[in-house]
Simulated scan of single mutants.
Amino acid sequence: MNNNVTRATNYLVKAAMLSAIAVIFMYFDFPVLPTVPFLKIDFSDVPALIGGFALGPLAGVIIEAFKIFLIFLIKGSGTGGVGEFANFIIGVSFIFPASFIYQRRRNIKSALIGMIISTLSMSLAGVIANYYVLIPLYLKSAPSYEMMMYGIVPFNLIKGVMVSASTLAIYKKVSPIIQKENLLRSKKLA
């Protein structure tokens, strides 16, 4: 089999596995702020961030897209697609910067800097997307300044810290498995 085809297959298998794990994590969500009870935290961005760190920023984005597509197929949408669109925008604004920074220099310092910048990026993207697109689509009204400052921003900061801490706790343990060059061949040899 062609080496490029094998690499592409392994890449897709890993992205699909991480997407499936992310879908499972989406079932376990919970609100954290009474000011915005419709915003719920789940840990589905952890597999996407792990994929972004291990396979590159594009993989993280692909995992986010697969996750949203799969959950939409399985559960449908209670928000007319707005919640899924929001999850993708916010997820990508977190996953891409962190994994891009980490890819430049693979060490704990880069990971931490990337996750801090990503948490801030996610908060900014959350304000812009919610103010101009998501909340007007979802609530059919303009959001208030208070909702942004006391709801959206704190929610995204909390989510960024929780996802970052979870990723830091498990990445070193799972990255050797994900980074194996040929998952299929190593499975046959075992």
Rank of each mutant, 00 (worst) to 15 (best):
S144C: 10
V61G: 09
F69E: 05
L120Q: 02
L39A: 07
A129P: 03
L73P: 06
E84N: 09
S77H: 08
L137H: 00
M147L: 15
L55C: 05
A111E: 10
F88S: 04
A98S: 09
S144I: 06
L124I: 14
L33A: 08
I50T: 07
A48K: 04
M115Q: 13
Y138N: 02
A48S: 15
A86M: 11
A129G: 11
A98Y: 04
G80A: 07
I135D: 00
G52N: 07
I89C: 14
F88V: 01
Q103D: 14
F53H: 11
I71L: 07
A59I: 01
V92Y: 01
L120F: 13
K75L: 15
R104W: 10
S110A: 12
L55T: 07
S141Q: 15
F43Q: 10
P136T: 14
P31N: 09
S93W: 05
F69A: 12
L124N: 10
I113G: 04
L124D: 05
E84W: 00
R106G: 13
T119V: 02
A111L: 10
G80P: 02
P47V: 11
N107T: 13
I41R: 04
F72T: 14
Y102A: 05
M148I: 13
V36F: 03
G91P: 03
L124R: 06
M122N: 08
P31L: 08
A54F: 10
A65H: 06
I63M: 05
T119M: 08
F66W: 08
P57N: 03
I63L: 01
E84F: 01
I101D: 00
I113E: 08
I113F: 09
Y131C: 06
